[in-house]
Design a protein around this nucleic acid. Sequence first.
DNA 1: GTTAACGTACAA
DNA 2: TTGTACGTTAAC
Length: 791
Amino acid sequence: MSGSKALGGARRRRTRCRRCQACMRTECGECHFCKDMKKFGGPGRMKQSCLLRQCTAPVLPHTAVCFSCGEAGKEDTVDTEEEKFSLSLMECTICNEIIHPSCLKMGKAEGIINDEIPNCWECPKCHKEGKTSKDGGDGSGKRRMDNGEVGRWKLTDDPPPTKKKPPSLDDGGRQDGHKRKKEKELPQDSGPKKKMKGAHEKRLKKKQKPNVSETAESNGPNSSTGGGQGSGGGSNSTQSPTSTASQDQRSHHREKLERFKRMCQLLERVRESSSSSSSSSESDSESDSDSPSGSDGRRGSEPSSPVPVTYSNSARERNQERDRERDRRLAELGFSASEDSEGEGSVKEEEEAVEEQVVGDKPRRRGEGPPRGRKGLTTDGNDEESGERSRKSTPLPPPSPLSSTQPPLSSGHGPSSGSEGFSGKRSNGSETRNGRTRAGVRDRETQEKENANNSSGGSVANHRHGTGKGNKGNKIRSNKQTGSQPTSRNSSSNSSGGMSALAASPRSQPSRMAPRSQMMKRSPPAVPSPPRPVQMERHLVRPPPACPEPHCLPLDNGSSHVMPRDVWLHVFQHLSQRELCVCMRVCRTWSRCIRLVCLRDYANSWPLSLPGLLELNVSGCPWSSVSALCQAACPCLRLLDLSRVEDMKDSHLRELLAPPADTRTAHGESRGGRFQNVTELRLAGLDLTDVTSRLLVRYLPHLTKLDLSQCGNITDQTIHTLTSPMSPLKDSLIHLNLAGCVKVTEQCLPLLRRCASLQSADLRSCTLLTPDACQLLSFPCPDDRVLLKNS
DNA sequence: GTTAACGTACAA
DNA sequence: TTGTACGTTAAC
């Protein structure tokens, strides 16, 4: 294919970047694609990559060369951003031409760089001709998530090559495969309608492509722009057919981009949530380069200069206000508008603005805010940072993974609307994907599709819907979609993505699942795209019921199981996530039970809003995951188990317990913390210091049970703080576990006497205490307290 | 030549 | 509309 259409118009299949987190991952072995792989004992028919390994920054194949000069990318030979850009291969999402910006006679100034995807832009020519992704609106309608749940970002729309290879041995071996082949081959021409249709489509595609390439040729990359092809058709008034084809292609591309962007957003969210704490250490290879000043860095290299920007007058009214807000925020941050903005809020807004902008001399990046100078041509990992920053600055509530299951929560989130916006725009067009045409009914269809895709498909795919295209669509839809999306999404997520819901969370998945990938940096996802659950597993995880869980588990025969709920919970706590997932299928009761248990291992997939949650156990989880709780709302939480949370420090605990900034008083923080109603806190095995005790006194005034066992850095100071006259805990504490606190001395014993309600104190393994003291001391009655005193 | 997996057709 | 199958491409 590359051969025939290699000229510009040919779309090249992108390949893994091999650097993003997703690429660096190993196959999960659990997703249905993994299960299909031969290595995991599957038939190997699906030939899809692991859901957790969806590359977030697919790159051009190594064989890609400049349409004009025939050479590969040479960005490595220069140092400056500008030069790198000029010598790198850029693929136009509209005409598909791959070219060195420096080979464009037309000047690269008006190219629109797509930050989300490496080496991706809308070439100057296409842009000049008005072939922005916006107009692409069409084909979108038809797009559907390839591969079902996993919407992949694929650039190749090329029709399958004409010649078909004989079935591979493997395939041949499989009857199914045979079947399929036979069906296809035989009926190709005379087969059922569908097949006919398919064939027809293929033919159309073939035809189109040639045209496209021809156009391109005619225009000639050298002709100054190279951009010609797809757009070329459009540019020529005589080429209506071609233009249609090109539009289709464009739209298709856009769809892909959108998907990709969405995915990026999702991932970013996930990462954001997970990285909300300082501890999040992961950084992609790309992100590594990012410095706290990611965006800054870019700016540094390329000072943003406010550039006159031309905005399209399109449907912005709706979002005007938000745009203004965004601009204002950017201004506050000292940005004219740029990638940073992307990281922020709503992708839609930004995208819209971006679309029509014409940045002075340099190519603009898609998704950049309205007035912004061009920033570094390359996208560095900064995005992550900027993304976070933006988040912070953005009032948007963090999407909650659960939100998907909870319409109210998820409803109307910018993200969702944003993504849809995309489709909306595209929907304008009446194109189809793969040659299938659909009536212009698009808008709605497109939206629905997108929604559906987002929700069900997947997770990853969703991520990919990003800013890029979304820009366009955004305008159109926000509200509508917002409304509708939740529904479809919810349903899908519910039915197919339990875990995904969790994963999605931070809608950060926001979903916060995998740490953001490098890609993300490229396009700091703007505001959170609608939280799209990553379809990792099909276990539905709904928020716990508001009503208290029954103490016993009811059996079918009406009786209660001999094991009380607490025992079950305890058992579940010792199961792996996979096991929990299996158990959740057993029955609703177990499912409810398990929901109260921390689903370990799914980093970045914590539920953010659990209004009815009473107990939460995240013991042993990495702080990068637990940090998601910093955005959680669990007003009913009574028990919080943070034992042995990896990498958890005092600062993290503060971050976790401190109330949200907006609830703080003028003097600082409000008295009650985020988990102020917690009565039992387990901090066993954490690397905490005495600073923690002050946090507890301050933010957890109702603690009755406190487990500080195995906290080796705790000293008498902690006991002093907890039992000080100013501490509300001196009256509330009933059980205190200091076992293994090797720095605690006997001097703490008299301090414990200050606790009027203290009934037991576990001081075992406190090596500085006398043997007598190092026992489980209980105080069922005042007399026992004396015991402690004596010991 | 082998493996991974992208992109799309098409069955369900 | 969703999920599966598979031709084909890209990397090794």
